[in-house]
Amino acid sequence: MTEIPEDHPRHDSLVARHRIEEGVEKGLTSKQGLIAQGRGEAFDYLLGERTTESADEAERVAAASLLRARHPVLSINGNVAALCPDETIELAEAVGADLEVNLFNRTEERVRAIADHLREHGASEVKGLTADARIPGLSHERAKVDADGIYDADVVLVPLEDGDRAEALGAMGKTEIVIDLNPLSRSAQVATVPIVDEILRAVPNVTRHARELRESGADLEAVIAGFDREATLEDAERAIRSG
């Protein structure tokens, strides 16, 4: 990768682009993932490439939800694996969550490549290869999940999600945390906890909040109960429209 000076005004976005490009070359990310990255970057530009107060509050609620969960799972697709493997593994360790590979453009080769990539970055176990259960109501490959993973989970973090699976997981009664830079997307609109933030900021923020909540002995139920998802989405849309 071409070295990008840290003082370059587009440093973070350029690094993210190169990570996605490398992800395609390594067989982790589909070519459609390049388009998704560009779309998200456009929304982040409108947000001012910053974590808003409402997004930070959503990240705190996400942390509380993961800590309170009976069985939390972090769903990993190709873009997530390419962009933030270390950060995602760190979050899983902080909240005691499983990692599970789940792909729309699924091939066994890609699933194995992503699982191997996560293990190379320190993950001890990665689910998603067994695919012995299905999410009801979906006819495409993202319906395939592990029975002892996403299917059994009560709380699922689904960054960079497909809207129909987000809806289907909600219909199963799961608490669904979505990271999506478009507050009008179906994923964000149906999420229990919508986080309108860039994933490279959002995941470390959730980890930070999880550690702080655990250390302080905060009342997790109170943190979750005080969350207003509609106000969070409205604030994100207002920030995008107003600049």
Score class of each variant (00 low, 15 high):
240 I>F: 03
126 V>Y: 03
43 F>A: 09
97 A>D: 02
106 R>K: 09
201 R>G: 07
119 R>Q: 14
101 V>G: 04
197 D>Q: 11
29 T>Y: 06
13 S>D: 13
50 R>Y: 07
2 T>R: 12
16 A>T: 11
69 A>G: 07
213 L>Q: 01
174 K>W: 06
175 T>W: 05
104 F>G: 07
155 V>M: 10
119 R>A: 10
227 F>D: 01
239 A>I: 11
200 L>C: 07
206 V>C: 05
177 I>H: 10
120 E>A: 12
143 A>W: 03
64 A>D: 06
141 E>R: 05
17 R>V: 02
19 R>H: 13
45 Y>V: 07
46 L>G: 12
201 R>E: 15
127 K>N: 12
168 A>Y: 00
83 L>I: 07
144 K>A: 14
151 Y>E: 10
227 F>P: 00
160 L>K: 04
193 V>Q: 11
231 A>K: 14
97 A>P: 03
33 G>M: 10
95 V>T: 06
166 A>C: 14
145 V>A: 06
206 V>H: 00
207 T>D: 04
149 G>L: 07
221 E>G: 15
161 E>T: 07
228 D>W: 13
32 Q>M: 15
137 G>Q: 00
42 A>S: 12
234 E>L: 14
160 L>C: 06
128 G>E: 03
146 D>C: 14
24 V>N: 05
57 E>N: 11
184 L>R: 06
67 L>E: 03
167 E>S: 12
89 I>S: 01
100 E>G: 06
5 P>Y: 03
56 D>I: 10
33 G>Q: 08
53 E>P: 06
54 S>E: 07
116 D>V: 03
174 K>H: 06
14 L>R: 15
197 D>H: 11
213 L>G: 00
217 G>T: 01
55 A>P: 05
13 S>P: 05
181 L>R: 02
219 D>A: 02
140 H>Y: 09
92 A>E: 00
113 A>D: 05
115 A>P: 04
54 S>V: 13
42 A>F: 11
120 E>C: 06
72 P>T: 08
43 F>M: 13
68 R>M: 10
196 V>G: 04
29 T>P: 02
240 I>P: 02
101 V>F: 01
20 I>A: 14
233 L>V: 12
209 H>R: 08
210 A>E: 02
51 T>N: 10
27 G>M: 05
212 E>L: 12
